[in-house]
Simulated assay, not measured.
Amino acid sequence: MDAFYASVEQRDHPELRGRPVAVGGSRERGVVAAASYEARKFGVHSAMPSVTARRKCPELVFVPPRFDVYKAASLQIRTIFAEHTALIEPLSLDEAYLDVTENLQGIASATEIAQRIRASIKAATALTASAGISYNKFLAKLASDHRKPDGLFVITPRMGPAFVEALPVGKFHGIGPATSARMNQLGIHNGLDLRAQDMAFLQRHFGKAGAYYYWIARGVDERPVRADRIRKSVGAENTFATDLATLDAAGAALQPIIEKVWRYCEGADIRGRTVTLKVKYADFSQVTRSRTGIAPVSSHGELEQVSLALLEPLFPVPRGIRLLGVTLSALNESSAETDAQFRLLV
């Protein structure tokens, strides 16, 4: 979906159409959960601190999130997917992989299926979706981003290797800004540079991810679309351009990570009992700290409180922090009201 949360708000509030909109908190320590395309022109994006977003775009309109509305729209979209295939692997409320090799309507062209799905979504929800069509998940994901918003793009088997080799590594799904910068330092700027490296080199510099990078540089991705995938945890992490040395700096850097995890939990209506903090230092050594409660974490504030409580005892740190991550596990799909009742009974 195109700028899903923000697009829903613009759909439901005509006065917001054509204006830069951010879904999220406008308070000093708030974080942007989603930005409209009008806001993105100013450099506003998700996970950006609200103060930074407002500085980049003084006319930005902040709207509080309505996860119940987003989830209802998501269910409408999933229903449309299910008219075409049972092999649906949701990634979030607004994105999914579909395997249409053997589709329910017997349509020979995946491109035609994508066109029908996009038209059905527009008719049912008044929202636009972008589709990527290809012969594996990695390339389909790249294709879905290639013509946003409201676009469709096909990467055929003949196109695949050339498309990958010309693409900057920063555009690869699974390669974030920090990894992209590290690759650039090693002389790897695009897919062709990445394909020139052997497996040993990539694993030496990027660990287990090296094998993934080796194969996607060749347009190869054997992962199947898994309709039965059960999510066991929800997590997010960020690698920083500059190492963090103080508790205040680390605490502030943790805020958008917590926000991202909780945003997913709210949207998917899931909760978890175990909070895990991941800290990776400048020398790539790593520690994790976990805490499991008797009841699921029930609010953003509680997740923040537990995460910071796990972080504080690690200071003073032996060396700078290059990465922080937060994961919520021991998940259940109960509503917030059920969680509150459970906590009260305990």
Rank of each mutant, 00 (worst) to 15 (best):
A140W: 01
Y135T: 15
L186C: 11
F201Y: 15
D228S: 06
F138R: 14
A110S: 15
I121A: 00
G132E: 06
R231Q: 02
A227Y: 03
A129L: 08
A196G: 04
R182T: 06
A131D: 07
A162M: 10
A131C: 15
E165I: 01
R182M: 06
I216P: 12
E222A: 13
V169W: 00
V225I: 03
T179K: 13
Q197H: 13
T179N: 15
A200I: 11
M199G: 03
I107N: 00
S130E: 09
S130L: 09
I113L: 11
K171F: 05
M159Q: 15
F206S: 01
A124C: 14
A211N: 12
D150T: 03
I188N: 10
F153W: 11
E165Y: 01
T179A: 14
A126C: 10
H146W: 15
L127C: 01
T156N: 10
V164T: 11
T111D: 13
Q203N: 14
L142P: 08
A162P: 03
T156M: 07
A166W: 05
Q115F: 01
A114G: 05
G219N: 06
L202C: 08
H173W: 13
S109Q: 13
K148C: 11
S109N: 09
R229Q: 12
G207A: 02
A124Q: 15
G160T: 14
Q203L: 04
R118V: 01
R226M: 08
I107K: 00
A178C: 07
M199V: 09
R147D: 10
Q197A: 13
Y214D: 11
M159F: 04
L142M: 14
E112Y: 07
Y135A: 13
S134C: 10
D198K: 12
N190A: 11
F163D: 01
G174E: 10
P177E: 14
I133R: 06
M183I: 13
P168M: 02
L202D: 07
L192R: 15
F172I: 00
R218W: 06
R231V: 02
R218K: 15
I107F: 00
L127I: 00
I117P: 04
K141G: 09
D193T: 08
A129C: 14
F153T: 07
M199Q: 12
L167C: 04
I216W: 12
A110I: 04
A166Y: 01
R182D: 02
V225F: 00
K171Y: 09
I155E: 04
L194S: 08
A129W: 05
G106E: 04
P157A: 10
I188S: 10
T125L: 03
A143Y: 08
F153A: 08
R158V: 14
V169D: 00
T156I: 07
R158H: 14
T125Q: 02
P177D: 10
T111N: 09
L152E: 12
G210I: 09
I188L: 12
P168K: 00
A126W: 07
R147V: 08
G191L: 11
R223C: 05
G106F: 00
I155C: 02
F153G: 01
I216E: 11
I155M: 06
F153P: 01
N190W: 05
I113R: 03
A124E: 14
A217F: 05
I175T: 05
A178R: 13
R223S: 15
F163C: 04
T128H: 05
Q203F: 02
Q115V: 03
I113E: 02
K208L: 12
D228H: 02
I188E: 07
V154L: 15
